[in-house]
Design a binder for these strands. Sequence first.
DNA 1: GCAGCAATTAATCAAGTGTATAATTTCAAA
DNA 2: TTTGAAATTATACACTTGATTAATTGCTGC
Lengths: 209, 209
Amino acid sequence: MTRKVFHHEPEAVRQNDLIAATLDSIAELGLAGATVREVAFRAGVTPGLIRRYFDNKERLVAAAYRSFIADLTAAAEAGCGEGSAHSRLAGLIRASVTGPVADSRALSIWAAFIGTVHSDPAMATVHREGYQAFRGIIEQLVGEVISERGETAAKAEIRSHAIVLNALLDGLWIEISMGGDDFSRLDVVRVALDSVATLLGIDPAEFRN
Amino acid sequence: MTRKVFHHEPEAVRQNDLIAATLDSIAELGLAGATVREVAFRAGVTPGLIRRYFDNKERLVAAAYRSFIADLTAAAEAGCGEGSAHSRLAGLIRASVTGPVADSRALSIWAAFIGTVHSDPAMATVHREGYQAFRGIIEQLVGEVISERGETAAKAEIRSHAIVLNALLDGLWIEISMGGDDFSRLDVVRVALDSVATLLGIDPAEFRN
DNA sequence: GCAGCAATTAATCAAGTGTATAATTTCAAA
DNA sequence: TTTGAAATTATACACTTGATTAATTGCTGC
C-alpha cells in the first residue's frame, strides 16, 4: 500500500483547519458526532495528528468554542459601524438578529457548547469570558446612548438596561436562529429595534433612522 | 455470588424513575455522562432493564426531554394563579425568573437537550411542541391583557408582542439561571415586570400590583 | 543533492459504549 | 403451596472512542 501523501502546514494554519473542522462536525452532527476521527477526516488529516496540536480533545473543543465566540462577537461588533451611539447600537441590534450571526449553524454550535458549560470548568471559563465581553459592549453602548441624548443615568441603571437588552437580544437570536416558521413573515429587524427603543425610552421612529 | 435482590415495580413508576435518573445524570454530568450504566445505577437498577421500558437510549432521552419540558411549563403556568389577566401575566413572569423554573439545574438540562435539536429529528419534534405550547400561553395572556385594558389589537400585533415577550423571558431565564454574579444584587422580578410592562405599554407601577 | 529534523501517517491499545440474550428471581393467581 | 408468567439480573458481544507509539514522509538549510 502506498501511504497517503501529505503536506507540511504552518502551525497556525493546521490549528485553524482543525478548529474549523471541529465546528463543522458539531454543527452537522452535534457534539457527540465531533469525534477525533470525524474532525480529522474533515480536516483532511489523520486522527493522530490532532494530538500534536492539542493536548486533549477537550482542549481542541475548548479552543473551538473560544474561536467561535470570538467570531460571533466580532461579527456582531462589525455591524456597529461608526457614527453616533444611536446608530451603532442600532447596527449591533440589526447584526444580532440577521445573518451570519443569527443563523441555524451558529445556534447549533452555540447550543452544543452551552450544554457543556455546567459540567466542564474549562468550558465555563470560556463561556464567562465571551459573555462578559459581549455584555460589556452593550453596557458601554447603552451608556453612550444615554449621554448622547443629554440625559444622565446611574451606573446601576445602565447595567440594568444592559442586562435586559442582552437578554432580549439573546432570546431573539435564539428564536430567529431556531427558525420556527413564525419569523418568516415578520420583519425581525424592525421588531428588535422597536423593542429596544421602547425599553430604553427612545422614540422608535427616531431610533430606526 | 448472590444475585441482587429486586422488586417488581409498576411500569409507570419504573419509567418515571428512569427518566428522573436520566435528568439527574444530565444535570450533573452532561449529556455525555448520561450513559446507560450511569442512568441504571442512579435508578437502582441494572442496565439491561432500561431496554424493557425504552426501545432505545434515544427514546429514553427523548422521553426525559418531554417530561422535563412539561414540568417546566407546568411550573411556570402554576405561577399564573387565577385572577385578572394582568395578575396572571405578572405571575407567569415572576415564576419564569425565580426558582424552581429559573435555576442552574434546569438550565443545564435544557442546554444539554437544546444541543441535540439540530441533529436529531426526534428531539426537534419534542422541542417544537414544548416551545409552541409555551408561546401559546404567552400569546393568549397578552391578548387577554390587551382586551382587559379596553384596547384592541390585530392578531399580528399580539403575536409580535408574544414573540418579543417570549424572547425576553427566555433570555432573562438563561442569564439568571446561568448565575453570573450580576444578578445577585438585582431584583430580577422587578426588572422583568418593569421590562414587560414597558414593552406592552403598561404603567409599570400598575402592573406590579 | 543530501542530511537531519519536524510533521504526518499507520497501526494498535485499553476503556467505555449501547445492545442482545439467557439465566434467575419475584409475585400473583390457582 | 405450587406454578407460571413477567420482571429483573448477569454476562457477553460488537463497536466506537480517545489515546499512544513507531515508522515514514516532506521539507529546509547547507
